[in-house]
Design a binder for these strands. Structure first.
Length: 483
RNA sequence: GUCCCCAUCGUCUAGCCUGGUCCAGGACACCGGCCUUUCACGCCGGCAACACCGGUUCAAAUCCGGUUGGGGACGCCA
């Protein structure tokens, strides 16, 4: 068995492409076959080397290793031309000199007659030879049906009369898509052609070419499209569509692969799969026929799952580039590890984690606008007898903390004792005394546990931040612009 | 316009092939509760679907036909 992934380098690897690549990979690996990569770069206008590199690196990042060197379609032009000429020689194709105007006229006529726009084959029996501007067209059989049993969709039938004489060799001497694909799949020994749904309509033409070339047919499988939330084809306006964009947003490859696999494929009620695990249980039989809507929420859930389950030291190295992107200096290993430990249960992406880590850096934290307001409000609440029972006066609380924390508590238990002691002393709930401290330390009302935070910040920064908040010097707190 | 494909909770899906075990199961999201120094995690609970019509059958989410709806394709792009 040989499967293949055949992207054209006219853009970055997108979500849909990644999924068909994944399915091909799983199919081959599961059955001990080969998975090859073919770069379909026959469109000289739009193909670039940069995109080729980008696609290959995205494949590697996802862990979809292919067998052998990538094949470039433009390296095989000779082969394609040879086959096209052979078809002419055997009377199964012919040279056509029709002008664009003539073709257009033919299409319009077909449309007017209630059919689909098609070329009428007027050069078909003219026995023309090559000439500048001429193309080779395949002679489509006049009648009958083309049918195949699709690996995913089941039996599909096309009337041959629906097909017209497609161009197989362009006037610039390069093969067209259908020709190049068929010749390559034949000569590369591809046994299972698994590709996007949008190619179903190409398949009957390709089957005809296989037959004209006297080649054995491969199996075909067409995987359904991925749609955006409005059920139209997934595109940029739905958000990120390239694998690279997800990488940059801090998604883990395991999460993306897991998500893509489960989008359209299932294995009972199981949701979490490693790539290796999927290889063992994957089957086209359980790929659905219907298009699927891409759900960023579920991807986030999976990503959070994989973040939580990645060994912390590994997470540290994964996080570093994201910290750097924010201009945060990577702390030494021990400290970074502690930071990561406080954040990994709270982050859906590495980018989000880096954002949440921001308050660990610098002397004073930046506040989000709402938290800044809250701190100021707390500081204004009167202390003592005038204070509402639920609110013991922010300034007083912070000063108490300042006293209590001259020596940082060693353990979480020690801190808890300080906390509940202070709460009892002021006759308020623990949350009331924790809140000003949290605001002072992190610039936010939501954060990891206070004790672990202080341990990471160290005594100097901890006390400095509390003091700054209690005294609210001019211009404090400094408000952070929302990202 | 023509052809092809598809149709179970808001979303991803199990079940459909081999009708009864499905007044339809799981997951994400959402809502409620517990845990709790906040947020999150975790745990518990809830909401929520067989597109419609007809046929076959003792019995249909499951089989058949039609309708509607959605998607895709009709290039010297891939």
């Amino acid at each position: 068995m040989i499967t293949r992934f055949a992207p054209s380098p006219t853009g970055h690897l997108h979500i849909g492409g990644a999924r068909t690549a994944l399915f091909n990979y799983l199919l081959a690996r599961g059955l001990g076959g080969k998975f090859v990569l073919r770069v379909e770069d026959t469109d000289a206008q739009r193909s670039t080397e940069e995109y080729t590199k980008s696609i290959l690196s995205a494949m590697e990042w996802l862990g979809l290793s292919w067998d052998g060197e990538p094949v470039f379609q433009t390296d095989r032009t000779g082969l394609h031309v040879e086959h096209a000429e052979r078809l002419v020689a055997e009377g199964r194709a012919y040279w056509c000199r029709c002008t664009p105007e003539e073709i257009e006229e033919s299409r319009k006529k077909a449309m007017a007659e209630g059919g689909k726009p098609r070329y009428d084959g007027r050069c078909r029996e003219l026995g023309l030879g090559p000439s500048p501007g001429a193309v080779i067209r395949f002679k489509c059989p006049p009648g009958g049906q083309v049918r195949w049993r699709d690996l995913i969709k089941g039996p599909i039938v096309f009337e041959a009369s629906e097909l017209d004489d497609l161009v197989i060799l362009r006037s610039d001497g390069l093969p067209t898509y259908n020709m190049a694909v068929v010749v390559d799949d034949i000569t590369m020994g591809v046994t299972h052609v698994v590709r996007g749904d949008d190619h179903v309509n190409n398949t009957p033409r390709q089957i005809l070419l296989y037959q004209a070339l006297g080649a054995e047919l491969p199996e075909f499988g067409h995987v359904p499209m991925i749609l955006g939330s409005d059920k139209s084809r997934l595109s940029k306006r739905h958000g990120a569509t390239s694998v690279m964009a997800y990488q940059e947003a801090g998604y883990l490859p395991q999460a993306l692969v897991n998500y893509l696999a489960r989008l359209g494929w299932s294995h009972g009620d199981q949701e979490i799969f490693s790539l290796e695990e999927m290889v063992g249980v994957f089957s086209l039989r359980h790929v659905g026929k219907a298009a699927a809507v891409f759900d960023p929420n579920k991807l986030d859930w999976l990503n959070a799952h994989y973040i939580k389950n990645t060994p912390p030291d590994e997470l540290c190295s994964l996080l570093k580039p994201f910290l750097e992107k924010r201009g945060l200096p990577a702390p030494d290993g021990e400290k970074l590890l502690k930071i990561v430990l406080t954040l990994r249960e709270r982050s859906k992406t590495l980018a989000e984690m880096a954002g949440k880590a921001e308050f660990y850096f610098g002397d004073l934290p930046k506040f989000d606008p709402k938290s800044a307001e809250q701190l100021l409000a707390l500081l204004k609440t009167p202390e003592g007898a005038d204070a509402p029972a639920k609110d013991a006066g922010g300034k007083a609380i912070l000063e108490k903390w300042l006293g209590l924390l001259q020596e940082l508590p060693r353990t979480r238990e020690d801190f808890d004792q300080l906390l509940s002691g202070l709460a009892a002393e002021l006759g308020v709930k623990a949350g009331v005394v924790a809140k000003p401290l949290r605001l002072a330390l992190t610039g936010s009302t939501a954060s990891p546990g206070l004790h672990e935070i202080m341990e990471i910040l160290g005594p100097e920064v901890t006390l400095g931040r509390i003091r700054a908040a209690a005294e609210t010097p001019e211009g404090y707190p400094q408000v952070r612009q929302p990202a």
